[in-house]
Every structure is written in structure tokens, then in C-alpha cells.
């Protein structure tokens, strides 16, 4: 766990937030020299929908003011981007605001600031669902954990499909839970062990634990069990986010 300017169990970290961001390769690739033209905001799908302006975020970070960067890390703002990277295509100075956002999110998680915003807290249900799918099945998305109740937009046809999963997948030529190659095959235990080992050596396991630890603290603070917290962060949407101007 990293805490800026505070003594932790392992070390004293005095590095500025901007310097921390510079350690992230995405930040170094994503921010060269912003001329504040606003092209990124003009092309951004999120800027039309949310109270979100990638130009302002990049400008804030570029000013290297740690108190402003800290406010960003604790804010709703950095969680609005959809990472479509349309901004990367159009920036006339080859910046990538979407990558700057990824670096900001990464630092927000490391510092535990993500629990201070409604959209940041969603990291918990996301981590719980996606990382579990990866480590249990070898896929980011997997039919057995895709609950129709959580996805009514998938329509009655998908409800039907899920009710007849084995037969429906067989009809479509999948090798669902089967041995050997093919779509939705069962990934062998030795391959799953390698995935787990990759998580262990590359920070994935540590990140998962960190998200859980900070989220547990927040759930206690909000008077919720972890399951209540997971449901709440997955489903609750207040009206503060939207660009209704």
C-alpha cells in the first residue's frame, strides 16, 4: 500500500503525486505537451454524456499541482472515460488523454482514494467479477457468471439461450466446458495455474487484495456487509454525474 508523505509499514514515501504518475508508462506515453485545444473533448463520447472534460483533466495534470491532482484522484471525474481512445486518434500533439486517465485510475486505486467517489467504488464489483472470471475460468467474461437478472438488456432471446446453454452452445459449434481447443473450452488446470502465477509475480494478486482491503474499510464505514456493498456499488446511480446542461 502506498501513502504519499506518510510512514507506512514498509517505507516512507515522499514522492510527489506527479512523479508517481510519471512512473506509469501510460502516463509517459499519453502526455507529451497539451496545447489545450479541446479536440479530445469534442470527440469524446463521455464528455457529451457526463460532466466530464478530458481537456481540463490533462491541463490539471500538466500543471503539476499536487493538491489539484489529489482532488482528481478522489473525484468522480476520472471514472467517466470509456477508454474508447477516440481522443488518441485526433489529438494534434499525439497525446492520449485516455491513457492519462488510466494512469490516474491506477494511482487512485494504489492510494485507496477510489473509495471516496461513487464511480470509483465500482472498482470493487468490477475486480470481484472480472478477476474471479479470469482466475476461475481463464476468461474475462464467462456464461456461468453472466446472470440474466443483472443483464435484462440481453433480452428474452438470451434468457432462452441461458436456460438451454449446453444445447444452444452445441448448436453454435462451441466446445462449452469441453476438452481440447474451441470456443468456451475448459481451460486445463496447468494453464490456470500459470495465469495465477502471472497474477502473483506481476502485481495482479496484490492489486486484487488492495481493492478488497480498501473496499472492506469503506463498506464498514457505510454500515454495509461486503455483499451489500457489492450490490450497492454495482447498482446504485445518483444523479450527480450527468451532463444535462
Amino acid at each position: 500500500m502506498l501513502e504519499i508523505g506518510k510512514k507506512t509499514e514498509t517505507c516512507i514515501v515522499t514522492t510527489k503525486l506527479y512523479d508517481e504518475l510519471c512512473k506509469d508508462y501510460r502516463f509517459r506515453e499519453g502526455l507529451k505537451a497539451c496545447i489545450n485545444c479541446g479536440t479530445c473533448t469534442a470527440i469524446c463520447p463521455a464528455a457529451e454524456f457526463y460532466r466530464y472534460d478530458p481537456r481540463k483533466i490533462v491541463d490539471t495534470v500538466q500543471r503539476k499541482d499536487d493538491s489539484e491532482i489529489e482532488a482528481l484522484l478522489r473525484s468522480e471525474t476520472i471514472w467517466y472515460c470509456g477508454e474508447c481512445m477516440s481522443c488518441m486518434t485526433r489529438c494534434p500533439r499525439s497525446n492520449a488523454p485516455g491513457k492519462v486517465i488510466m494512469a490516474l485510475r491506477n494511482l487512485s486505486v494504489k492510494l485507496g482514494y477510489f473509495t471516496e467517489s461513487e464511480r470509483g467504488r465500482q472498482i470493487y464489483p468490477l475486480t470481484e467479477a472480472i478477476n474471479r472470471n479470469i482466475l476461475e475460468y481463464g476468461y474475462c467474461v464467462y456464461p456461468d457468471t453472466f446472470r440474466f437478472e443483472d443483464h435484462p438488456e440481453s433480452g428474452p432471446v438470451w434468457k432462452w439461450h441461458l436456460e438451454h446453454k449446453e444445447a444452444s452452445y452445441a448448436r453454435m459449434g462451441a466446445n462449452y466446458k469441453g476438452k481440447g481447443p474451441g470456443a468456451l473450452r475448459q481451460i486445463a488446470p496447468e494453464d490456470m495455474s500459470e495465469l495465477k502465477a502471472i497474477f502473483d509475480v506481476s502485481g495482479g494478486t496484490e492489486r486484487t487484495a488492495l481493492v478488497e482491503e480498501f473496499s472492506r474499510k469503506k463498506a464498514e464505514e457505510m454500515g454495509m456487509s461486503m455483499e451489500e456493498y457489492r450490490r450497492h456499488t454495482f447498482e446504485h446511480c445518483s444523479d450527480i454525474h450527468f451532463n444535462n446542461d
Partner: peptide
């Protein structure tokens, strides 16, 4: 070649910010 041993690339986790860049790259 359709090799049964490959897994997710981790891309959805990476762009949902649930795994570090190094984890995605190692996968």
C-alpha cells in the same frame, strides 16, 4: 493453429482497470 492452452489476454480487465499494466502484458 487453434491452441487449447491459450487464455484470455486480460484486455477487458486491463481496460476496466482491475489489473495492472504489467499483469496484462505478462498474460
Amino acid at each position: 493453429c487453434d491452441n487449447e492452452h491459450h487464455t484470455t489476454c486480460g484486455g477487458i480487465a486491463y481496460h476496466s482497470d482491475t489489473i495492472p499494466q504489467e499483469t496484462a502484458m505478462t498474460i
